[in-house]
Amino acid sequence: METIDIPIYSLLLVFLMLVVPVMLSRIYRLGLSKPLLSSAARMTIQLVLIGVFLKYLFLWNNAIINFLWLTVMILVAVFSAIRGLTMKPGKILVPVFISFALATLTVILYINMFIIRLDYVFDARYLIVLGGMLLGNSLRGNIVGIDTFYKSLRKDAKKYQFVLSLGASHQEATRPYMKESIRLALKPTIASMATIGIVALPGMMTGVILGGASPEVAIKYQIMIMISIVVSTIISVLLTIVMTSRVCFSKYGILSD
């Protein structure tokens, strides 16, 4: 069973659906048309480009190119993660990149090698598509985790110093903050894990089913990807905190600006 292709003229019918919200926006003066149309246009252009790009990536299926593209994806994720933080981006760019890369790569390679058992573990179809899913889905958790850690430490500066004065090591004094950051980072993922399948059919599963596979295969992939997301989020939040701590704290254990 092959996925039914959507002809280009049919795709135009998809855009025709947008007429409804545009009309509604006119009638009720919702001011929705402009942002809606411009982001729909952006999405279309980006997806067309990535479609062409992926086509060639799959065609060449070259390990080096695949890795380079994965690196670009990780870099984009890193930039969006550190953009909102108060620390100087130049200072934390490298440690965050290393953490994200380690977390994503170990999980993908583990999947490709031992679960899907690919003959060619750098296969673009798996490396890049799964990498994208992992990065995309752990990004929000990562941002929440890192942000919580440094924001609450800054807010609690006096209390943190007091705990240091009690004789705590840097690790002991930051542990409560690490715990809270990881808890908050994982909260949405854990919540969605518990309701998945009932409330919504997740994207991965939908894709696999539309791709012609049976629901049994689809759920196996979904289980795999959910666990992978949780694991890579935990690894990347923890690693990011540990690695950025080395540059963000002075040797005296004090958070620098």
């Binding site: 006096k158 209390k159 007091f162 240091l164 004065s165 009690l166 004789g167 090591s169 005296y252 254990g253």
Partner: peptide, 17 residues
């Protein structure tokens, strides 16, 4: 400094623990 902190007892009224 880590050793010094273990030898001093510091009480700060502002700290909300």
């Amino acid at each position: 400094v880590w050793n010094v902190r273990q030898k001093i007892s510091f009480v700060d009224q502002d700290v909300s623990i």
